[in-house]
Nucleic acid binder design. Structure first.
Length: 570
RNA sequence: GCGCCCGUAGCUCAACGGAUAGAGCACCAGCCUUCGAAGCUGGGGGUUGGGGGUUCGAUUCCCUCCGGGCGCGCCA
């Protein structure tokens, strides 16, 4: 499926290539705001090949290009060839695409049905989720939707941190200091207290760490008491996590924690040893990676015989390859683990599992104004508190703006708007940047925020409910491209599929967010300036209603790609 | 010390190597008898951290310095 915007761009490039030659490197640009054109082709790169100045080339092209049905005029402007769309044909094409595709408008077949495994969220068991877990969870969920929309078969796997030495410390602390009453009341809260206390005590008495290691070993060796307690911790944690996932409306196809791979690591180690990839060093088993430019070796097995997360991640990747046969595996994990993933991917290639794209979709850390978050030091903001506060603020605003809604409706709107605001605050900026946590920024409900976009949808739906729906039948009439506000909407709607492609390409949800914000701005301007239901003619009214319907559809699907919902009223 | 990432308006952020670097917030001045004002219009605000280089053209690519973050063998 080739969308109209894409078709128009291809037509423009081909028209120029017919004159300038097939092998010239051409690029397309969007003219700046004041320029009366829809596309621009810089002619500077052609100067050398065509032995003429960019200005002359642009002028000659403007005179000689043959424009297809989607293009109307060509003018030279300095070294640029500026092209305008044939508004009637272009708008009819775009609006036809939107109407025909409906909720699928913007969908791609880039994935060709191939499978992509997406590893995201992955909180550590026995601790509350902090705002630090938010990014992986919602970026991962957005990439899941994006891949599904682009023709992939996504598989979401929540790779829980449910194994490792941390359970040694927890088992020790549980036996040493458990407050049974507190544990019965709030198991995760009590486990957190034990975790923090252990850290403090172990500073004074380092021998505690040895005892914790003993517990860890007992757990790995299958000690029944240790196993039973561990299982209990995991169960409590999953229940707590699920509450948050329900609020966020995030789902996984699998929740295979690290412990799932406990019995799958032996094979990895054996293979690595047999192939001579792993060697003993200082009592540990390591994989040297100097030959691929990584100075730090990957440790496969500690000198005391215990495994590490490297080992589990290797087993995990191999399991995923064998079970799901993906073309890509995405790891949505913070940038602080870059080295780990470089090591992991390099080792997988050495082991012969290189026939798949491994992508570390990294993101910056969420920090507090006073520095890095640290659960151990109690310097942490819990995700649940942030979600509650967001919903509470949204709820107060609904009460003020729309007191006539029923109580359940207000609650539902508060949830959609509040949670949406949090997701948008994160997804609207480039994931590589660190974020300093700030309540007011994270929970903003005006300006460039989810509610602004949701309000766009609400306004559009308001018009459609008022009889606009029925008025929409019939062809789109080009008279409804006459004002700047209308034409801006046509262009924006037409651009959506390419935005999806660009976001997918770089694993950048913020590309979608930025686009939707621009669409919302265009719509609010249109809403203010252009009467829809009171339009002068039936054709105009019908076509404007179609624009409104298109905005509503794209806004809903676009926000859906970000995992953000839309209310009918707010 | 070595490696990776970031540095754009007072604050928070955008900007396929392309024309005059754009938004939001904050501040100031306007707009509700017309489809919902969670909105719209206008205003001031910039040596894109500094300095070199590549290029017809650099916020974008390269080098260097400064500032911040992260990582660098038995935690995850």
């Amino acid at each position: 499926m080739v969308y109209t915007y894409e078709a128009a761009k291809r037509a423009a490039l081909e028209a120029v290539r017919r004159i300038a030659g097939a092998d010239v490197g051409l690029s397309l640009a969007t003219p700046p705001a004041g320029v009366p054109a829809d596309l621009a082709i810089p002619c500077f790169p052609l100067a050398a090949a065509l032995h003429a100045s960019p200005q002359e080339i642009a002028a000659r092209l403007a005179r000689t290009v043959t424009l297809g049905p989607l293009l109307e005029s060509a003018q030279a402007s300095g070294g640029y060839l500026n092209l305008t769309f044939a508004r009637g044909a272009f708008a009819a094409g775009v609006m036809g695409d939107v109407h025909r595709m409906g909720d699928r408008y913007g969908a791609l077949d880039a994935g060709g049905g191939r499978t992509v495994v997406i590893d995201f969220s992955a909180p550590n068991v026995a601790r509350q989720m902090s705002v630090g877990h938010l990014r992986s969870t919602i970026i991962g969920a957005a990439l899941y939707e994006l891949h599904k929309f682009a023709g992939y078969q996504p598989i979401g796997d929540n790779h829980l941190g449910d194994w490792g030495t941390q359970f040694g410390t927890l088992l020790y602390a549980y036996h040493a200091w458990l407050d049974r009453e507190a544990y019965a009341q709030d198991p995760i809260g009590e486990l957190l207290r034990l975790y923090v206390k252990f850290d403090a005590e172990a500073r004074r008495d380092p021998s505690l760490r040895d005892q914790a290691r003993q517990w860890h070993l007992r757990l790995e060796q299958g000690d029944p008491d240790a196993r039973a307690l561990w299982h209990e911790f995991v169960r409590h944690s999953l229940a707590a996590f699920q509450k948050i996932y329900d609020l966020l409306e995030v789902r996984f196809d699998h929740t295979l924690g690290e412990s799932f791979y406990e019995d799958k690591m032996g094979e990895v180690i054996e293979t690595a040893v047999r192939r001579g990839i792993a060697v003993e060093d200082q009592g540990a088993l390591i994989v040297r990676l100097d030959d691929v430019g990584i100075k730090t070796p990957l440790i496969l097995r500690r000198s005391d015989g215990a495994t590490l997360y490297h080992t589990r991640d290797l087993a995990t990747a191999i399991y995923r390859l064998r079970t799901f046969h993906p073309s890509k595996i995405l790891y949505v994990v913070g940038a602080d683990q870059r080295l780990h993933f470089q090591q992991l991917f390099a080792t997988l290639r050495k082991l012969g599992f290189g026939d798949v794209d491994y992508v570390h979709v990294d993101f910056g850390l969420i920090q507090l104004p006073e520095g890095r978050m640290s659960t151990r030091r109690g310097r942490v903001v819990f995700l649940e508190d942030v979600l509650d506060e967001a919903m509470a603020r949204a709820r107060r605003l609904v009460e003020e703006k729309n007191p006539e809604l029923s109580e359940p409706e207000k609650d539902e709107v508060a949830r959609i708007v509040g949670i949406g605001a949090i997701k948008y605050a994160d997804l609207s900026q480039n994931r590589v940047k660190n974020i300093v946590f700030d309540w007011d920024r994270m929970l903003a409900l005006d300006g460039d925020s989810a509610p602004y976009l949701q309000y766009t949808y609400v306004r559009a739906r308001g018009i459609l409910r008022k009889g606009g729906d029925r008025a929409a039948e019939g062809p789109f009439d080009p008279v409804a491209t006459g004002t700047p506000a209308e034409w801006a909407l046509v262009l924006a709607l037409g651009n959506f599929p390419e935005v999806v492609a660009e976001a997918l390409q770089g694993y950048y949800p913020h590309v979608v967010a930025n686009y939707l914000f621009a669409l919302a701005q265009a719509f609010h301007g249109f809403y203010h300036d252009v009467p829809v239901l009171q339009a002068d003619s039936a054709a105009l009214r019908r076509s404007r209603v179609q624009l409104v319907a298109g905005v509503a559809t794209v806004m809903r699907t676009g926000l859906g790609l970000l995992g953000i919902g839309v209310p009918e009223r707010m």
